[in-house]
């Protein structure tokens, strides 16, 4: 399967059930938005720091989680300083950082496989109208299709380079979409051929 963002460990956070972690995250985020106060930011900061310590994560994991949002956070900080004041700017940016770090705490301590198992376990208790087997099939199929679409993309790109069309993205995407759609149609047939309906 694809590698996920999991960091190996055996802490309390690693062992907690995915659903519990997600619910805790939802409560945490709601709390941060509901109580617009520095004291809440401070408490949340302590909680996130404690979480990182318990899970045995290092500062660079936190930095890596924040990096993708870095420039937009800088922009928002600048806008806030300009339109409001430094205090509000710092408050907003701290809140973002805490939200992202708290979320990464869940992501870094849970494998994608555990989440998929969690989803499947959750589906078992779902009411009858939920198409459980279809949802499970769709998740597996996506994981199966990702490497396949990538290889088709590479193959078609090579063919188009050979024809001097490498800068024409339409010429690249049309064959990729048509080929993978045909592929999907035959896969649907193969699934039906194996008595799934």
């Amino acid at each position: 399967m694809l590698s996920d963002l999991y960091v190996f460990g055996d802490s309390l956070l690693h062992r907690a059930r995915p659903l519990i972690k997600i619910l805790a995250l939802v409560v945490f985020c709601t709390g941060l938005f509901l109580f617009d106060h520095w004291a809440v930011i401070a408490i949340a900061g302590l909680m996130v720091a404690a979480g990182f310590a318990v899970a045995g994560l290092r500062p660079h994991h936190g930095v890596a989680a924040l990096r993708p949002a870095f420039w937009i956070l800088v922009a928002i900080f600048a806008v806030q300083v300009w339109l409001a004041d430094l205090a509000l700017a710092t408050f907003i940016i701290s809140r973002f950082a805490l939200l992202i770090l708290a979320a990464s705490l869940v992501t870094l301590t849970t494998t994608a496989g555990e989440f998929v198992d969690g989803i499947e376990a959750g589906l078992k208790h779902a009411p009858g109208w939920v198409p459980k087997t279809r949802i499970a099939l769709a998740i597996s199929l996506t994981l199966r299709f990702i490497p396949l679409v990538r290889s088709v993309l590479i193959e078609v790109r090579q063919a188009q380079v050979a024809r001097g069309l490498e800068r024409n993205i339409t010429a690249l995407l049309v064959p990729v979409v048509v080929r993978t759609l045909k592929h999907a149609d035959e896969t649907a047939q193969a699934i039906q051929a194996r008595s799934f309906d």
């Binding site: 694809l2 590698s3 996920d4 963002l5 999991y6 997600i22 995250l25 985020c29 989680a65 993708p68 949002a69 937009i72 956070l73 928002i76 973002f96 939200l99 992202i100 770090l101 708290a102 979320a103 990464s104 869940v106 992501t107 870094l108 849970t110 494998t111 994608a112 989440f115 998929v116 989803i119 769709a138 998740i139 996506t142 994981l143 990702i146």
Partner: peptide, 26 residues
């Protein structure tokens, strides 16, 4: 389906990003 897979930590966004954090960002 795609966003669910991103949320559970598969690095499927540009730059290998994924996880709940991307939804928490601005």
């Amino acid at each position: 389906l795609f966003l669910t897979l991103v949320a559970i930590g598969l690095p499927l966004l540009p730059g290998g990003r994924g996880g709940f954090g991307v939804f928490m960002g601005p």
